[in-house]
């Protein structure tokens, strides 16, 4: 990948600061809207930067894809009713996680194809790639299920079937095993299977959660996506992804705890209450 020139690194730094200010602004009622706009400006500027220093191919296709996504995002965000906001956030979070997983799969392909093969990158990069593929898929599948629950495309009651806990545990073990496999002897099929196991794990994570608890799970999945973006930033050697992703991962995790506390519930009870036979608010 092209070395990043100093001016671009400085712009990335400014954008990272913009994201910090955005989160700071969003946590106070008077500054919230300004904070959101600062975040949006930082995101747009950061995404414009690579066009000026990387010798990008397929620029027209990329711009078309951005335009399609932008129109989709704006239309979705404007049409949604106020009462449907949580599921809209879940859906946006899910597509973000899915995008991160796809980016990591593509980067895995690049790593395998490059001259010199996998020996050029350290095992730590492969671990970060595996993390992004797995957790990104978890976030995608989990968010789609939460969307379906809140949109009443499926029952919002906790859904538990016999053996769910066993399949759930097995998919986690399989995920960790495949991630280890990917770090030790990387291959494309391992990455793809890892993504599929992630989808299964994400769905099973969210199915037993009752409708009233879903917003907290959305917040948790949001933090997950943040961490996948951070790991993706390490893989791609891009500092603004690392900082933005980590900020979201950390603040999202903390926010999840705050939200659970405000509801007087513990996060583990929300996630695993139905599995233990206890109640989860439905």
């Amino acid at each position: 990948m092209t070395a990043v020139p100093v001016w671009a690194q400085l712009v990335y730094l400014a954008c990272a600061v913009g994201f910090i200010l955005a989160l700071k602004g969003l946590s106070g009622p008077r500054t919230a809207r300004t904070g959101n706009l600062v975040g949006a400006a930082a995101a747009v500027i950061a995404c414009a930067v690579p066009f000026f220093y990387v010798d990008l191919d397929h620029v027209v296709l990329i711009l078309v894809a951005i335009a399609v996504g932008t129109v989709g995002g704006v239309v979705g965000a404007r049409r949604v009713q106020m009462t449907q906001m949580p599921q809209m956030v879940a859906l946006f979070n899910g597509v973000g996680g899915g995008a991160a997983a796809l980016v990591a799969l593509l980067e895995l392909h690049e790593i395998l194809e490059q001259p010199g093969g996998v020996d050029v990158v350290g095992w730590f990069v492969l671990v970060a790639t595996a993390f992004t593929i797995f957790v990104g898929s978890v976030s995608f599948a989990g968010s789609v299920i939460t969307f379906a629950k809140l949109q009443e495309l499926m029952s919002s009651a906790p859904l538990v079937f016999p053996g769910l806990a066993i399949v759930f545990g097995a998919s986690l073990v399989a995920g960790v095993g495949l991630a280890t496999q990917l770090a030790l002897s990387p291959a494309m099929w391992v990455g793809i299977v890892l993504a599929l196991v992630g989808l299964l794990f994400g769905a099973l994570l969210v199915l037993p959660v009752g409708g009233a608890d879903v917003p907290i799970v959305i917040s948790l999945l949001n933090a997950f996506t943040g961490l996948t973006v951070a790991a993706g930033g390490y893989v791609l050697d891009n500092v603004v992804l690392l900082v933005a992703g980590t900020l979201v991962g950390a603040s999202g995790t903390f926010l999840t705890l705050l939200m659970a506390k405000a509801m007087g519930r513990s996060v583990s009870n929300i996630l695993f209450g139905a599995l233990k036979g206890g109640s989860t608010l439905g």
Binding site: A22, L23, G35, C47, V49, P50, G69, A99, T225, V240
Partner: peptide
């Protein structure tokens, strides 16, 4: 808002 910020993965998607 935090959810929107992690949409910065767009930058990574453009790069790859």
């Amino acid at each position: 808002g935090a959810n929107a910020i992690h949409g910065i993965i767009l930058l990574g998607a453009i790069l790859v």
